[in-house]
Design a protein around this nucleic acid. Structure first.
Lengths: 265, 265
DNA sequence: CGAGATCTTGATTTCAGTCAAAGCTGGTGG
DNA sequence: CCACCAGCTTTGACTGAAATCAAGATCTCG
């Protein structure tokens, strides 16, 4: 009764990737990645500068906070978290990243990584040497524009995190988080309603600005209200509307078979 | 008894700027801005594409959230805030910007401004058409690298905001805010200890993730403890060490003539 | 000068954190 | 195969930091 979609089943897919020619042209995630919108000839040139693939086991770091910067990394397979260590020594998670996402942009400003990137499961990245990317961008207007778009989207992504962390209640943040994860899977062709949480409760807390206990309580509440089905890290969203209503500030669940009774259950 | 340094006295400086030739080469803030580190010949080329100066009166918007994007803007004179409107309709301030800072980078990703920029006093910006900047960057490696550094620093700046908003207490955030503002003035040749808050208490709250009442109380507390002298929006930092100790988590003020007695005062 | 905006201060409430304990789960070795 | 253990997760009781509510005070500028 495994309802979860098999995105990035590390063992199976890693084996497949091994034999396949590794380049952007053939990569099924290229439209979420740097090659998005580029002509085939430009993608072929981008292929030339991809240094190598790199595999990481679960919990292995791709780069650490303070490490010197040389390359960007595109997630090819698996999931990563990026995190900063705060003044209490806790991990403040700045993002969860899946196939097609670009990692390392935080280091372009200073040449030093501002956060660490850790594999949440066995994963694989493409390494893009930053100098060579800049050189290629000089000769490839479309690539330069796309690279700027990607950098710009990173800025927007972080602004969005600031906004929701700063102005939403804990339950709203959690609801939005679950919906957003679903939306990202959906964009990649997977189910928006049924997926596996690749990260621990602690990581979710670190991302949402909550303690692990609050995360647990909120998920339990959503489950009791019938909005989600939760089995360890497998999640199924049963009442998207209520979650959305909650996250946008309207009081949720008045039209759906939930609220009072379900609450008492 | 005005101890505050006269940075960007709008009337006087605006008049001066009017007669001066407006370009990066002669701009006294160029080393904080896009021309940083560029050869004179490259700066001259950058000068060519600066579309125009634009003046804004206090409270006037340079761009609004959702507006379509065409140009970046370098602050030449005065101060700006950038802000997003959150789900409660309140302003969530994403930054305060002074001479040399670049505005509008949040829009590169989508072509739409993700936040609004509002002048905090009579101010002046240089408009840099983004298309022309990209064209020029294609021909000027140093400019491209510098532009990428600036984008990268914006990413880091936002990560830093996330980190401190997410993991510091209200008083620590306030202390850090005051010190950071001072540091930025210091870098520009002004006093780090004595300056004018260009923004309202509400804006400070919007930036730090606090209510206006909390801002007021914290400033009152710092004043009572003798760490700052506060006269409306004029501020003088009297005990940098205690503020720094507070913001870094050590208990402050044990070595300075403050704490208990001052607290009771 | 006066009215509206901005800022301060006090009393009370509340949301999420902290502390504490118990239940799961999955991996390891006997 | 099962017992055990460490780490992860859940749940409950209590606490505390900052928000909210409510007056006032002060400033700004027309």
């Amino acid at each position: 009764m495994q309802t979860v979609i098999p995105i990035a089943n590390a063992n199976a897919n890693a084996a497949a990737a091994k034999s396949a020619k590794v380049n952007c042209t053939l990569c099924s995630f290229n439209r979420f990645c740097l090659p998005q919108g580029l002509a085939d000839s430009d993608v072929a040139r981008l292929d030339q500068i991809i240094a190598r693939r790199r595999r990481l086991a679960r919990d292995e770091q791709l780069f650490s906070m303070g490490a010197s910067f040389g390359s960007l990394y595109a997630v090819r397979l698996g999931h990563f978290k990026t995190a900063q260590v705060n003044i209490h020594g806790e991990q403040q998670v700045t993002g969860f990243h899946m196939a097609g996402d670009l990692l390392g942009m935080d280091a372009i400003g200073s040449g030093l990584h501002n956060c660490s990137a850790t594999a949440l499961e066995d994963s694989e990245v493409c390494e893009i040497p930053f100098n060579r990317l800049q050189e290629l961008a000089m000769q490839t207007p479309a690539l330069m524009q796309q690279f700027h778009r990607v950098l710009g989207r990173e800025i927007q992504r972080e602004q969005a995190i600031m906004l929701f962390r700063g102005s939403m209640r804990a339950d709203q943040r959690m609801a939005l988080f679950l919906l957003n994860l679903g939306a990202r899977y959906s964009a990649r062709g997977y189910s928006a309603a049924s997926y596996q949480l690749r990260m621990s409760r602690e990581d979710i807390g670190g991302y949402l600005g909550l303690t692990i206990e609050s995360v647990s309580r909120l998920l339990a509440r959503f489950r009791k209200q019938g909005w989600i089905k939760l089995d360890n890290r497998d999640i199924r969203i049963n009442d998207r509307d209520s979650l959305e209503a909650l996250s946008t500030g309207r009081e949720p669940g008045l039209d759906s078979a939930t609220s009072a009774e379900a609450c008492a259950a």
